[in-house]
């Protein structure tokens, strides 16, 4: 019985700590957005959006653990794939000055 109460307390502590970590994630997103808006050249902006997208996928996975719902985590899978596609398209545009067929 005491062990069960201790376990429930630990679960509450873990969930509140995850809430604090999610707020820290949002603060670091604003730091990434500074480079997105300030970056002097196109590769700088794309690099910042790249890191921002991967961290957003991690944020969505942790948020789905926090909210106890698996629907958000499935979107994170396709988000990380689309970020890679953005990288490849911008690299191809910078080299050949065309978007490709």
């Amino acid at each position: 019985m005491i062990f069960r109460c201790l376990l429930i307390m630990i679960y509450d502590f873990v969930m509140s700590l995850l809430g604090v970590l999610l707020i820290l994630y949002v603060i670091s997103f604003t730091l990434y957005l500074v480079r997105v808006f300030k970056g002097p050249t196109i590769p700088d902006r794309v690099l910042a959006i790249d890191s921002l997208g991967y961290d957003l996928a991690a944020f969505m996975v942790i948020l789905s653990v926090y909210l106890k719902s698996p629907l958000i985590a499935i979107c994170a899978l396709s988000l990380s794939l689309w970020i890679f596609v953005l990288d490849i398209y911008v690299a191809k545009y910078l080299e050949a000055r065309e978007m490709g067929d």
Partner: peptide, 11 residues
């Protein structure tokens, strides 16, 4: 992540 950033740096 590594493949994407390498392609971007090369371009």
């Amino acid at each position: 992540a590594q493949a994407g950033s390498h392609a971007l740096a090369r371009a």
